[in-house]
Structures are given as C-alpha cells and as structure tokens.
Design a protein around this nucleic acid. Structure first.
Lengths: 229, 229
DNA sequence: CCAAAAGTGTTCGGGGTACACCCATGG
DNA sequence: CCATGGGTGTACCCCGAACACTTTTGG
C-alpha cells in the first residue's frame, strides 16, 4: 500500500450551522456577512472546514466558539449536502447541523472571517450564499416536526420559563394557534416541565408560575397535534 | 490563492449502503464478505469511496450496479458518521444511505471486491466490520419509524400485491401485530393503494385482490399506530 | 364438504378539541 | 376597581381499538 488514504484527492468537508435563537416571540437564525470571496458581502450560515483530527461536533463547537462565543448548546446533525456546484472554489461537501440556543445567554461577536454577525427573523431572510438557503429550509422543517414529539423547545428559552412562554414558542415555530388550555394540560400531563414553586415577579398582572424542563423526560412521551396545512 | 481546495489534506469520504430486502416474511440486509484488509473475511455493508465528480447518489448507484447488479431503487440518506477510529486505514467519513429493494427483481452478484454477497435476516446479523453495526441499526430504526407515515412499504414488494402481503410486511418490520381489518381500512381510506381489479390466481383458497401503489399519495396522508414498546 | 385465507361492519372507549369563567396583580 | 394575562374544568365527538361471521376457492 503506497499512498495513505488522505493523500488521494478528496472533496473538502465543511460543516455548516443553522443556529436558531428565539427572542421577543420571533424565531431567528444567525448569519454571517462574509469578508472574503466567494460570496463576499453576502450573508451565509456560519461554517468551517473539518480538520483531519476533528469530529463534526468538534467543528461545530469550534465555529460556535470562535465566531459567536457560544458553547454548550443543543446540536443535531441535519443532512449532508453534495451538490457538485455548491461551492465555486471546488468540490466541497457540507454536513449541516442545527443548533438551538437562547440568545440571551451569549454575546454574539463578529469573528475575523465576517464583517458582521446578525440574527435574522426566519421570515425575513436575505438571499444566502452557497446552497445555504436549502440547508436553512431543511433545518426549519426539521425543527417544526421535531418539537411535536421531542422536548427540545426549552433549549430556546431561559432555564426557568412559564407555560405561556412555552406555548408562545410553539405557536411561533409552528406558525399556528394552539388552544392554551389544551396545550397546558398536555405539557403538564406529559411531565414535560417541573413546577419550581417560584413565580415570575414584577408584572402588572397575575404572576405566572415558573417551570423548568424535566430532564428525565424521554422522546416520544408526548405528542402535540397541529392542523397540517 | 495557491492551492486548490482538494489539495489540502481532507478526510476520505465513503458511502455505505444498508440495502433492505423483504422475502418470505423476512426483512433482510445485503452484506459483503470482504476479500481484502481491513476486515478481511468479515461481513460489511456494501460501500465505496466518493469520487471527486460524483454525487452521493452517484456513488450509491455505482455500488449497487457493480456489486449487486441493481438500479432504480428507493434510496434515502440516513446520517453521516464521523467517528475518527471507524476505519483503521485512516480518517474516513461515511455517509450512510439505505435502500429498499425487492430481491426478486435482481440477481445478486458477487463483485470483484467481495468473496461473497448474502442476504441476512435483520435478526440474525453477523458481527460487522467498521462501525457498520451502528449504521445498520440506525437504518432499521429509520425504516421502522418511516413506514408509519410515509408510504414506502411497497418498495419492498412486487408491483402488484395483496393487502395481506402489505399487512404482513408491516407486521414483520414493526415486529408487532396489527389488526387485519383496521389495517385494511386505514390503507384503503388513505388511498395508499389502487385496486387493479385482478386477483392472485392459483391459491388453494379465496383469490385475493391485487393492488398497486397509488403514486399520487403524499407523505403524511396516513398514520399507522402501533403500541410503542 | 372441508380447510384456509379473504373480505366485510359495528360497538365501545379514550383522547383530542372546543369552549368560558374566576383569580391574582399593579396601577 | 379596573385592565391584563394566568389558571382551571367540562362536554362532545371523532377516531382508533377490539372483535366475529360470511365468502371464495381448491382439493
């Protein structure tokens, strides 16, 4: 055996991140404005190349850390994208991941690669470079179906939250209305959340109870039903 | 810019296939017995390296064609596997795909890379090389959840099939019993199938009606419910 | 006539949906 | 005391689950 494997020509491997954040009843995605060609001055998903020794998650955290200052977030692999024309520099395969974060926890910083880092409402996305629109759309679709049966919504909220806040989050992501009382019953019956006994103070009306996520809860132990349109 | 992208060191990219076939009330997976190191004489999933100009599906079809003589089958991307130790030859990323085929349609041939090509009952799998057991298990899990809401079962059957055959397929894959009458009603109500008006001949009992898949049927237009264990 | 599998309808119960009133708080 | 949003209970209906008898065919 003459050559080592990596000495053959191989496509490059990039990891691209769809970072979802939720704030003010708005679901947003974090985009970078590129300082370099290709797609200079275009908005793109944060991404980076996989290093030889790195895992995908390793790359994800490197991107999150250096470009946005984040760590310890929910990450899930989305899909791998192989369109031969997706990167004008050559053959690049992209492994898409999506992240769910609470923007309040982090100070977003513009890294060295980007002019600017900004949250965009998922309904007001700019034109994206590469095939990032495809990646974004798949991620959004995945998130929408995932929150129906997997308790991931809390990743986007503060550690303590009210049922109403969780309810609004679901309505925002699913773009529909959900009966408030039925939602509450289902979430409580499924033990999605644990009542902390504390209340949110300082409001001009009744103080809602604060809950935290029940970490023992398993996937598929509840099911939110929505009119599929 | 001095170097072209692919001249940097990159991990190799392999595509590994979990090929499901159904026959005699048994769900099987096609495995190759390797002629070469690593994992010489071990059973593995069919796979191959992505060529620079190739798409993932291109690689899939190349593998299917050269190793098994198949084409025109259902293929879906499963997941990408990045465990740094998964291939003893060096850093190899694997993109997993799974295929659903009707074994009756093809003559399986042992290609030049393999000692042997064989179907294995999913419940009687041998020890697999690389991380192929992980890939296989994820594929099986995906198939089990997919047939509940996406009409893919027919991919494993002949073009014309009876409701009973479809019913047995579901019971076999899901490893459970499903009420025959409720299943039939649900499949017919959802217009999963179209009655061809012909009947299966030559049986010693009542001749069942033959159906074909309704190609207009969309995902999520039905839902099989099963006791989740 | 018998064995074997195909085909068909009805009943019952649980869960999902729809819906309205009282409560707590700050101003 | 009023405005605002939080918290709670019930009735109905639909869908899913359970279930048994008749029909067709070959031998």
């Amino acid at each position: 055996m003459a050559k080592l494997f990596h000495e053959y020509k191989n496509p490059s491997l990039a990891v691209d991140l769809v970072i979802f954040g939720y704030h003010d009843n708005t679901l947003s995605v974090l985009l970078l404005n590129r300082k370099e060609e290709p797609f200079k001055d275009c908005w793109t998903l944060p991404g980076g190349f996989l290093q030889m020794e790195e895992t995908f998650l390793g790359t994800c955290y490197r991107i999150l850390k250096t470009k946005t200052g984040m760590d310890d977030v929910f990450l899930e692999q989305l899909y791998s994208f192989d369109n031969p024309g997706r990167d004008p520099r050559g053959r690049v395969i992209a492994v898409g991941y999506y992240a769910l974060i609470n923007p309040a926890r982090f100070n977003i910083i513009a890294g060295s690669m980007a002019n600017d880092v900004k949250w965009f409402d998922v309904h007001k996305m700019p034109k994206l470079g590469f095939d990032h629109r495809d990646i974004f759309q798949l991620a959004l679709q995945r998130l929408k179906s995932k929150i129906l049966y997997d308790p991931v919504g809390f990743e986007l909220l503060d550690e303590l939250f009210t049922i109403t806040e969780l309810h609004e989050l679901y309505e925002c992501i699913l773009e529909t209305t959900i009966d408030r009382r039925n939602f509450r019953r289902k979430i409580l019956d499924a033990e999605y959340v644990i009542n902390t006994g504390t209340k949110r103070e300082g409001l001009q009306n009744r103080h809602p109870e604060l809950y935290k996520f029940n970490k023992k809860l398993k996937k598929n132990s509840f099911q939110i039903n929505v009119n599929v349109s």
